[in-house]
Design a binder for these strands. Structure first.
Lengths: 192, 192, 192, 192
DNA sequence: TATGAATGAGCCTTCATTCAT
DNA sequence: TATGAATGAAGGCTCATTCAT
């Protein structure tokens, strides 16, 4: 049923179908056909809106990044204290959207592919650096002696918890992860 | 020219070629032919020694795990103190073999695939739990109040540092990672 | 913004775009979309005016033939002498329109396709016979002993020169071709 | 039925199937599958021996060229007179192999494609120049005043006759073509 | 024990055509 | 009259697997 002005609708549909497919059956088993079927459209439409499969995958990863950024923004009050900032970051990274198995698996799939796919690698780097600088900014404001080290430490902890959770059959225990991160921050601050 | 007693040689050859191929060109670009070419043998030989491609991949992951285990054993003195045990674990995880980009990328590729490949998932779980219980054992011996939590925290830190390093263009800075882990242990111990 | 009386304009636009596309990127790379883009219209319009792609291609070949015919008419004086007729034919076949690389390539593409496309084959035959009978008529009037043979010979020479020119990277050297044809006619006449 | 030493057999099989397919159904309708089916093998084998479809097409054109060259060699006596050389060239170009509709159509298809396919264009140029220089050599030895012009003329005549024949439903009338070429040579010589 | 020829399913992509607007 | 969204078939290519030698 051809319509006009379908572009934003279709793009959203296809990106969601892509994320779902990667999350459910994995990166390797995600084919153009599997995505199209999931979205309830024909396979040809992907070329129409995204040029090719890679274009759709890239758009999907961008969407995940945008979502993460938006999540954080919404959790940050105006002029947040360092503690509020750290809290917001932690909670964003273990929020429902990030922790839901579909997204988690999709993230990990992209990370893994990023190692040999420049287009993904670049996006991946953006994400990595954004987390690091956000954390560093907060630690600096808290007058932590080596904010860079503290940031690296907490960033790794977040990613590690997230990774282990994503790989675990039970999924991510968000509450426990948040608790572990908080405790880590307390240790860092108390050590000053 | 068929020879006898080639099995262990061929298996080693092929497993190494597999690890190198995954590390260098990625999981997706690693084909039976690319592995065979790298090993300097014909593609048919894989079926002969490993049944099929999956068999070879599984054997390769097993080999990585065995290597990691062996590394740790060799670093552990007899009757190690808890500190010695933690040190050995940390150093093993950031040892040359683990930190070299080929292995790191291969590990991550397997992890990512593990999410949808039961054979990999099982091996992955073994690894995860081994690290956790090793750490927990040490923390218990150190009379840390919640050794489970401490182990989860340090395990996540190790994996997170390792993950971020593997994804970084510069590779893993082993020394810095070890330092961060030590500092984390100090914080935990001092907080008691 | 639909307009009335657009038919002749659109048809011309599309036929020109088709010829340009075939000439520039070749028959195989000429798609409905590439034609529409070149003509600055949407792809759907082709079905509207020509039924389908084949209809447009056929119309394009017809246009080339009509152009050739018109060219000849304009070069023929009233009641031409046989020599004038031969001259006009030769000059028409190596005129700017025919010699320009776009047209030459388009002609050859159609010829090649004609071998397996009845619609093109028919048009192609018309062209071939027109040239032959025009030449024969002139040679007869010149009292050449075997006008049929002479016509076949000159027709082949014209087509051969044209073919070799079209295939040559430098394009067709019209002047030299005309000279060669004239010389051929001289030889035939002198041999009587 | 896998065998060893099949390469030359398979290559020949596939090249013949390609020529037959192009000749029978045309360049556009010649698919990897249609070739494989004709050769009685699977489609994958083309990649095995020729890399890809283009590799096979190129090999096919090379084969046609080689055949033409061989044909000429076999017709040339040792130390041929100029007349013998010209005769051999003419007869080769209108020999059974060249005149059979399959080959003729295949040649024309390649010529047409050559305009936009550098790989074909190069081969096509070789052929064109070989014919020209062969003719020129003979005309020079006959003390024709402008051997270059004479060669261009006869080359065009040969190609033109061949082209018109290939495009004609009745195929090429080899005898008549040879006769026309001979007459052309006579005219050139007598005009000295 | 080892080769590599051969298969064929499945992938991504291209593209003529259709049709609601 | 005109658009361009949408379809789906068909193409070329890749690749794990099989198997005669």
């Amino acid at each position: 049923m051809p319509k006009v002005g379908m572009e934003p609708i279709r793009r959203k549909q296809l990106i969601e179908a892509t994320r779902d497919s990667i999350g459910e059956v994995g990166f390797a088993a995600t084919t153009v056909q599997s995505i199209a079927r999931r979205a309830g459209v024909s396979s040809g439409i992907i070329a129409h809106y995204f040029g090719n499969k890679m274009g759709l995958l890239e758009a999907t990863m961008r969407e995940l990044l945008a979502q993460l950024k938006l999540d954080l923004m919404q959790r940050l009050p105006e002029n947040p204290t360092p503690e509020q900032r750290l809290n917001a970051i932690i909670q964003t990274n273990f929020s429902k959207t990030q922790v839901d198995p579909l997204s988690a698996k999709t993230w990990l799939a992209f990370w893994s592919s990023a190692m040999h796919e420049p287009a993904f690698a670049q996006l991946q780097q953006i994400n990595k650096q954004r987390l690091h600088s956000n954390l560093k900014f907060a630690f600096k404001a808290m007058a932590i002696s080596d904010p860079d080290l503290a940031a690296a430490s907490l960033a790794a902890l977040i990613d590690g918890l997230w990774l282990r959770g994503a790989l675990s059959p039970e999924g991510i225990d968000a509450e426990r992860c948040v608790q572990l991160c908080r405790r880590h921050i307390d240790l860092i601050r108390d050590a000053q």
